[in-house]
Simulated assay, not measured.
Amino acid sequence: MAPTGVGSNEFYRSEEEYLSAVADALRVEYQTIIDAGFSVQIDDPFLPDLFADRQLDNAAIHRKANAYIEILNHALRGLPQDKIRYHTCYSINEGPRIHDVPFIEFVRFMLRINASDYSFEAGNVRHEHEYHLWEQVKLPEGKRLIPGVICHTSNTVEHPELIAERLVRFAERVGRDNVIAGVDCGFSSQATYRTEVHPTVIREKFRALRAGVSGDHHRRFAIHQFK
Rank of each mutant, 00 (worst) to 15 (best):
C89S: 15
D43Y: 14
I34R: 04
S20R: 12
I104W: 00
N58P: 01
R126S: 12
A23V: 05
R27V: 12
H99L: 09
D35Q: 15
T32K: 13
F106R: 02
G123Q: 05
A52V: 08
L76I: 04
A52T: 11
A75P: 03
A25H: 11
L47E: 07
L26G: 13
Q31G: 08
L19Q: 10
F46L: 09
D44K: 09
F38K: 13
E128H: 03
S20N: 11
D53A: 11
Y90E: 10
A65I: 09
E70Q: 14
I69D: 14
N73V: 03
A122Q: 13
I92G: 07
V101H: 01
I71R: 05
S39V: 05
D53I: 10
N66P: 01
G95V: 04
N93M: 15
A75K: 05
M110A: 13
P80W: 15
I33Q: 03
I34W: 02
W134G: 02
I98Q: 10
W134S: 03
I84L: 08
Y86M: 02
L79G: 12
H99I: 05
I42D: 07
R85H: 09
D100V: 02
E105A: 06
H99M: 07
R63Q: 15
G37E: 15
N66K: 15
T32C: 04
D57I: 06
R85I: 09
E130L: 00
L26C: 11
V125D: 04
I61R: 15
A122I: 04
D43N: 13
L76M: 09
I71A: 02
I92M: 12
A115K: 03
H87W: 08
D117A: 13
F51M: 04
E29T: 12
C89G: 12
R97D: 10
V101N: 01
D57M: 05
D43W: 10
N124K: 08
E70S: 12
P45Q: 07
A36V: 07
D57G: 08
Y131Q: 08
R27H: 14
A21V: 05
A25K: 12
I84W: 14
I34H: 01
Y68V: 10
P48V: 07
D24Y: 02
N58C: 09
A36M: 11
L56G: 04
P102Q: 02
R108L: 06
V125N: 03
R63L: 15
L50P: 03
P80T: 13
A65S: 10
V125P: 15
N58H: 13
L133H: 00
I42M: 05
V22P: 06
G95H: 08
K83E: 09
Q31N: 12
I34C: 01
R54C: 02
Q81A: 11
D82F: 14
I113H: 03
I92H: 08
E121F: 01
L26D: 13
I113C: 05
A60N: 09
Q81Y: 04
A115S: 05
T88C: 12
F103S: 00
N66Y: 11
A52P: 01
E17M: 01
Y118P: 06
R126T: 04
P102S: 01
A122Y: 14
F109G: 04
N124D: 07
F103A: 00
G123L: 04
A60G: 10
H99A: 05
K64S: 11
T32Y: 06
T88F: 04
D100A: 06
E29A: 10
R54Q: 06
A21W: 07
L133S: 00
